[in-house]
């Protein structure tokens, strides 16, 4: 019999759906919120503080029977720029997407300036990425520069 080193799965495998890996542990629940799974009926597994060679610690989210929109992937990129999104079909990885920060982010980030017009009238926010790591964005309207810790999503 072949001797295989069997890795213990920390999170149960899924037959079909999406696995979001390499999420910084501290933002894992924020990423959950992006997916808006309150009414969702299929299995969801979440793990935090898993050991990771590249990150030290990481989080993973597995969602059965659910695939992400481009908008959702962009949102994840803002919170977790090094995350990978795996599309699972038949228990195997069908496609692996390294999320990428877009240059412009429309109607995803809320401006942290309470006196910004985007917090006064119903208009789409528009941010440009001025630095990817560490993340820095600038509001097209009021020109407020925000760092990762200031960022909240709409």
């Amino acid at each position: 019999m072949k001797q295989a080193i069997k890795k213990e799965l920390k999170v149960p495998a899924i037959k079909e759906g999406t696995v979001i890996d390499h999420i910084p542990s501290r933002v894992t629940f924020k990423v959950m919120r992006i997916l808006d799974l309150k009414e969702f009926e299929h299995p969801i597994s979440v793990a935090l503080n898993l050991k990771s060679k590249s990150m030290g610690h990481k989080g993973i989210i597995k969602v059965g029977s659910r695939f992400l929109t481009e908008d959702e992937v962009n949102k994840i990129a803002i919170l977790a720029p090094n995350a990978t999104v795996n599309i699972i079909k038949g228990y195997g990885v069908k496609e692996k997407i390294n999320v990428q920060l877009p240059d412009k982010v429309i109607n995803i980030i809320k401006c942290s300036n309470p006196n910004c017009i985007t917090n006064q009238e119903k208009v789409k926010t528009h941010f440009s990425i001025i630095n990817k790591a560490p993340l820095k964005v600038i509001c097209r309207h009021c020109e407020r520069v925000m760092e990762e810790s200031d960022i909240t999503l709409i």
């Binding site: 401006c111 300036n113 006196n115 910004c116 006064q120 208009v123 097209r140 309207h141 020109e143 407020r144």
Partner: peptide, 11 residues
């Protein structure tokens, strides 16, 4: 008096 109002007006 609101920041970003000019950009919105231009839009």
């Amino acid at each position: 008096y609101i920041e970003g109002a000019a950009r919105l007006a231009a839009e």
